[in-house]
Design a protein around this nucleic acid. Structure first.
Lengths: 339, 339
DNA sequence: TTGTAGGCGTTATCAG
DNA sequence: CTGATAACGCCTACAA
């Protein structure tokens, strides 16, 4: 039933070495033989066993990806971008979920080593030094995507969007539209890129415009509707002077904030403007349509994958330590100019 | 650098056969030796090379999944459910995207055969007879998920939600709430399960209640916002008597329909009720909150994966040809009782 | 240009 | 219970 290289060799009346050569185009073979071999290969529908091949070449043509949650559309888009490049490179993608847990991430690093992946795209939550250390000793190349290392290691190639700059731009947008009393609903404090960096961007924009804001204007959610709702509620209830705008660090929390405000008989954007983050598919479909900052996770995946393949091709190729994917401020109807 | 079974054998002063035995628990080994071997394995951090192993056992502990689009949250949830089971079985997941194209699906069937996956979960768009035939000759087990075969083959195990029944129930829900003039916005006509079957469920419910509906009440979208908007527009513009309710075959098109109606100064649910399908994450966050039918794609993935593993364990195990995942009608605010 | 043969790291089949 | 040793299917010096 299953046909091996030997069968082909016999049937084509050549050595298996020759067959191997025509398959891999690895050395000159006379046109005549080449044709004969091809003929038989086609006829018998022969496909070389990648296990046997991998055993020798130490290559599997598989690359791994670890994401916190594959059902999150953000990581869906990221994965799609990655897969796009993989396909055209003849690679295939192994997907693993970490749940955002360091323990699990470490375990996956092992498992993927076992599987002999040729490389790994890693989307973490807090890639600290010990995790980086673990990555360095793995014998397959790794590129961080979506989240840079949190402890200043420049040791692993990274492809991210600029969270600081993106949030800075978004808040500047609010300021440029006349807002001075700006609240903030961010991500978890232990989330390095999407939590801490976005907060930093917020603070930076305020500072640069000499705007001060009370502590009670700042809340941390965890990117869920529920947490966005609660955060907005807290800001609403615990401030005698309400903000005129809120920078919310993802779209779903932004929607939640809007829902809360509606319940409280506040109108968005008339009374309060809301700025989202991500420009997820649905941002456009809510009413009011959400002003937000567009991040293309697909593009991020594409660039990360390309970078990884460069690394696979040549471990020492010259690549910037960190590459940024551009973002864009999208004006829709949840933010209005004031004054 | 890389340690093999032979190194372990040497260092533990046993034969490689013995090492293999303790690793795989395949035959009795004296406790003494077993301990010694374990010790060395731990010390040297030895992990057997799965390629070499696979070469002999013909097992890779990899299963494949093909979906039309991994960035679609529906398939994200499905994948998550599948991955859940894979993990606890010590398997790892290879994800492929077909774009819903038969050509590509066929190609992936080949590629995954090459990769020597131990099994495959297949989410197609129109799994016709020729595709099924191709699947039958593959030497790894396959289970269909999300979409059954379209040409009455009962040859491949299948796990789906009951599209006919689900839509039937949803439309019955509308009828029970007093609606008689019910329009329908469905999926593509070439989409077997999600297109044709849902239409069938719609027609069935009408028929059973002796309700007739003009041709112009029925539109086909392609599950995008845009197509939902257009379909609703067409129904609105081309009927002198408007429906009191519309059954829309996914949530995003349902939202689009609502947006169109709002633009047309119609109120949902006051003037027209809208019923969605899927209960996607956001269905709850729109206003009005969407009445819909809940499908758990996660559960579907779980059951499909379990089924596949049964098949992998025992090719001839007794499994129903088609297993159904239950659905549930969710009442929210986009549908109101009339009369 | 072509063929022979050794080896990749395991498991499985024999003897002992 | 333990140990040689032949596969598994392919690539790649090395020789011819």
């Amino acid at each position: 039933m299953k046909v091996t290289i030997e069968d082909i060799a016999k049937e084509a009346n050549v050595s298996i070495a020759t067959v191997s050569r025509v398959i891999n185009n690895t050395k000159a073979v006379s046109p005549e033989l080449r044709e004969r071999v091809h003929e038989v290969i086609r006829k018998r529908n022969f496909r070389p066993n990648p296990l046997a091949k991998g055993l020798i070449t130490n290559r599997t043509n598989i690359i791994g990806i670890v994401v916190p949650d594959i059902s999150n559309p953000i990581f869906g888009a990221l994965t799609k971008g990655i897969n796009n490049i993989c396909e055209q490179q003849g690679y295939t993608l192994m997907v693993c979920e970490s749940g955002g847990q360091r323990e699990k991430e470490l375990e996956l690093l092992e498992i993927l080593a076992d599987k002999k992946v040729d490389g790994l795209l890693f989307a973490g939550v807090d890639v600290n030094h010990s995790l980086v250390k673990e990555m360095k000793i793995k014998d397959y190349p790794i590129v961080l995507v979506t989240q840079e290392a949190s402890e200043g290691d420049e040791e692993i190639k990274t492809v991210v969007h600029d969270n600081v700059k993106a949030t800075y731009d978004a808040v500047s947008f609010l300021i440029n539209n006349g807002h001075k009393k700006i609240a903030f609903i961010g991500g978890p404090e232990n989330d390095y890129s999407s939590g801490q960096k976005r907060l930093k961007g917020f603070q930076l924009a305020l500072k640069e415009n000499n705007i001060e804001v009370p502590e009670s204007y700042i809340e941390h959610g965890n990117f869920t509707f529920q947490s966005g709702f609660e955060s907005m509620k807290k800001i609403y209830e615990e401030n005698s002077v309400l903000p005129t705008a809120v920078m919310v660090c993802n779209d779903i929390m932004a929607i939640a904030a809007i829902r809360f405000l509606e319940n409280a008989n506040m109108s968005v954007p008339h009374d309060i403007s809301i700025m989202g983050f991500d420009d997820s598919e649905y941002a456009n479909y809510f009413s009011p349509e959400l002003s937000t900052v567009r991040i293309s996770y697909f593009d991020e995946g594409v660039k990360a994958a390309k970078t990884l393949f460069k690394l696979i091709d040549d471990q020492y190729s010259i690549i910037p330590n960190t590459q940024f994917i551009s973002h864009k401020i999208i004006r829709r109807n949840s933010v209005r100019p004031i004054e």
